[in-house]
């Protein structure tokens, strides 16, 4: 009798286990660390932040004239501004392509960003490959080849804490045509065909809506005559759907290879321009 009771108890426990509440199991969908940066670009350089699959990011970038021009030029706002319109599309959650058009030199650029590795509990950082090809579309008699320039880079980024993200961007820029420019005073300044830079970027979140960002692209090896490193500082404002970026930058050029080659303002001399970017994401699926 005792034996029967034991068997009955064991089987009852088995049945109870069958009918108990389902064990709660996490989906593996979202192990990836997100929101290292709030927009697909830091300021001039792209960030590892990707456009999700089936989404379109529309961006409007403005960089005005030099702030040091003073009140008579309304601190650069009266000057000729560089403007870029950009559209980026997420082919997958790891791969996006983009198209843009800048006012300066009427540059049209097409590029891609591929997040090869993503930060997660299993891996400590993001590694993304980026590249673009740009065309100078002015009517200036240049050959098709001379109009072309390229930018290739690797983005290595890590979200160090909920507030702080950092990114290192070894980059290569190539211009098929290196121009020699006559400058005031009679000298000649030469641009480089190939430029190498090591972009360093950071973002520090002050709240869920506001973060600060900084970017520096020191050149490795030679640089175009008269050019300076790109240095930019700014702030992000996240409004749920839009990301507004306001910044001060030594570069009026927005396409990275042009910024690396043609930034003529020096941060240490206080030569910076005011700019802003608006990002808006749309779902089209």
């Amino acid at each position: 009798m005792k034996k029967h009771l034991v068997i009955f108890a064991v089987l009852c426990l088995t049945v109870l286990e069958v009918v108990a509440q389902l064990p709660r199991e996490r989906s593996n969908d979202r192990q990836v660390v997100e929101e290292l940066f709030w927009a697909p670009s830091v300021i001039i350089l792209p960030s590892v932040t990707q456009i999700p699959k089936g989404n379109v990011n529309f961006s409007i970038q403005h960089v005005f004239g030099n702030v040091s021009s003073g009140i008579s030029e309304l601190f650069g706002l009266d000057a000729s501004a560089n403007i870029r319109f950009g559209l980026d599309y997420g082919i997958s959650d790891q791969l996006s392509v983009g198209l843009g058009r800048s006012r300066f030199d009427k540059v049209v650029d097409a590029g891609f960003k591929w997040n090869v590795l993503q930060q997660s509990e299993a891996f400590p950082l993001y590694a993304s490959a980026i590249g673009n090809i740009a065309f100078d579309t002015r009517e200036n008699g240049y050959s098709t080849s001379d109009r072309q320039s390229y930018f290739v880079g690797l983005l290595l980024a890590r979200k160090v804490s909920e507030s702080l993200s950092i990114q290192l961007s070894p980059s290569w820029a190539h211009f098929n045509l290196a121009r020699d420019l006559q400058v005031f005073g009679g000298g000649i300044e030469s641009e480089k065909n190939d430029l190498f830079g090591l972009g360093m970027s950071g973002r520090y979140a002050l709240s869920d809506q506001v973060s600060l960002m900084a970017e520096w692209i020191p050149m490795l090896g030679g640089r175009s005559d008269g050019s300076h490193d790109v240095v930019s500082v700014g702030a992000n404002l996240e409004t749920g759907g839009h990301v507004f970026q306001v910044f001060l930058s030594t570069s009026q050029w927005i396409t990275p290879q042009y910024a690396m080659s043609r930034t003529r303002d020096s941060f240490s001399d206080g030569e910076v321009s005011f700019g802003f970017t608006v990002h808006r994401v749309f779902g089209i699926q």
Partner: peptide, 8 residues
């Protein structure tokens, strides 16, 4: 929701 940013 169809928009990655909104999902985040």
């Amino acid at each position: 929701t169809g928009i990655g940013k909104r999902d985040k």
